[in-house]
């Protein structure tokens, strides 16, 4: 009789993926159809275009419990809405500056661009991101809402 195996492994990091429905979402589907192995700790929200993802949503996700956020769109130059995904790059880049300044770090934000038939790329990029997030500390200090008394100096 063996005791059931226990693991003290940290649960895998939770990631919210905003995927543009013209490319990245189809890529995610393709990764699923190929039965690519991926941690099950990410959730995908389809959006019309990566540029529709406001940086506010990324912040809201981080505050609500996500360890990382991925914004995925079409290849630069392959956007259905002319150059809209360039806007996504610029905005998220600026958001990364803010995250770096306050110490959350832009490592928690993944921006990636691929096409619909690159399911393997989706799996690879997201898998790498999940592995990178693994050792990062949780954002508990940022999420704590109790009055932080020692901060009153």
């Amino acid at each position: 009789m063996n005791a059931p195996e226990t693991t003290d492994k940290k649960p895998s990091p939770r990631v919210l993926v905003f995927a543009c429905r013209w490319c990245a979402l189809i890529g995610a589907d393709a990764a699923g159809r190929k039965k690519t192995e991926l941690p099950a700790s990410f959730r995908v929200i389809p959006v019309e275009c990566a540029s529709m993802v406001e940086p506010d949503s990324v912040l809201r996700a981080l505050a609500s419990g996500a360890d990382g956020v991925a914004v995925m769109g079409c290849h630069l130059g392959g956007c259905r809405f002319n150059d809209a995904n360039h806007v996504a790059v610029k905005r998220m880049e600026a958001l990364g500056d803010l995250l770096d300044t306050v110490g959350i770090g832009r490592r928690r934000l993944l921006l990636s661009f691929g096409t619909a038939h690159e399911g393997h790329e989706f799996a690879e990029v997201l898998g790498n991101f999940l592995r990178e997030l693994g050792p990062l500390p949780e954002l508990t200090r940022w999420r704590k809402t109790l009055l932080n008394l020692p901060a009153f100096r």
């Binding site: 809209a84 990364g96 691929g114 690159e118």
Partner: peptide
């Protein structure tokens, strides 16, 4: 240039920030 400029963001000459993971892989892999 950040939020409003949908018209003149030329793909050529725009440098991706280093942290971006771009999937510019060959398609037939």
């Amino acid at each position: 240039p950040l939020l409003m400029d949908f018209d003149h963001a030329s793909p050529a000459g725009f440098e991706l920030p280093a942290w971006t993971v771009s999937s510019e892989a060959p398609h037939e892999r």
